[in-house]
């Protein structure tokens, strides 16, 4: 990571992972919110493993970023908010697959989704967009070394 190409290469792969997530999970969320009606949601969901792969890759790369330059991240409010949004998105995923995915999977191609599915989709989409915004902010604002909310 400290070679001249390591950091830019990791950043590029991090963006590829992001695009996989937006392209599969994000499109699935948009479908649940009512866009692209006619596409069966159970069929579109078959793309989601690509997003999970992108997410897993990004977690690995993200850990590489943080361990290579912890002082840029741990006290950076953008990074703290990013982690919080990832936490909310994670709880939302558990909630979605436990309570909402069943009826969504069985819904017809033209059907309107249950309200709970729309809420979950809106939370997911806002969290991931927020994660991208905060991620972009991390390197834009480099806080002084000992910055934190409580000091």
């Amino acid at each position: 990571m400290n070679s001249s190409w390591g950091w830019p290469a990791a950043e590029t792969m991090h963006y590829v992972g992001l695009a996989l997530l937006i392209g599969t999970v994000g499109m699935f969320d948009l479908r649940m919110l009512g866009l692209a009606r006619g596409i069966p949601m159970s069929a579109l969901h078959k793309l989601v493993p690509w997003g999970v792969a992108g997410y897993a890759m990004n977690v690995v790369i993200g850990v590489m970023f943080v361990t290579s330059a912890p002082e840029q991240y741990l006290f950076n409010p953008a990074f703290q908010i990013k982690l919080a949004l990832m936490g909310i998105a994670g709880v939302n995923v558990l909630f979605f697959y436990r309570f909402v995915f069943g009826p969504v999977k069985r819904a017809g191609a033209e059907a309107d989704t249950p309200r709970a599915a729309k809420v979950a989709a809106a939370i997911s989409l806002s969290c991931w967009v927020g994660v991208i915004v905060c991620g972009r902010l991390i390197t834009y604002y480099r806080p002084p070394y000992h910055w934190c909310f409580w000091c």
Binding site: Y15, L18, A19, L20, L21, I22, G23, T24, G26, M27, L30, L35, A36, R37, G38, I39, P40, S42, A43, L44, K46, L47, W50, I132
Partner: peptide, 30 residues
């Protein structure tokens, strides 16, 4: 840019044969 590449990821993966039960012409609705 994430959404532009994202729509292309979904559409092109579908053309490449993944998620074959998605009607291809309807991908244009994205």
């Amino acid at each position: 840019m994430g959404f532009i590449v994202g729509v292309h990821v979904a559409t092109n993966l579908r053309i490449l044969g993944f998620a074959p039960s998605v009607p291809l012409s309807l991908m244009k609705r994205f």
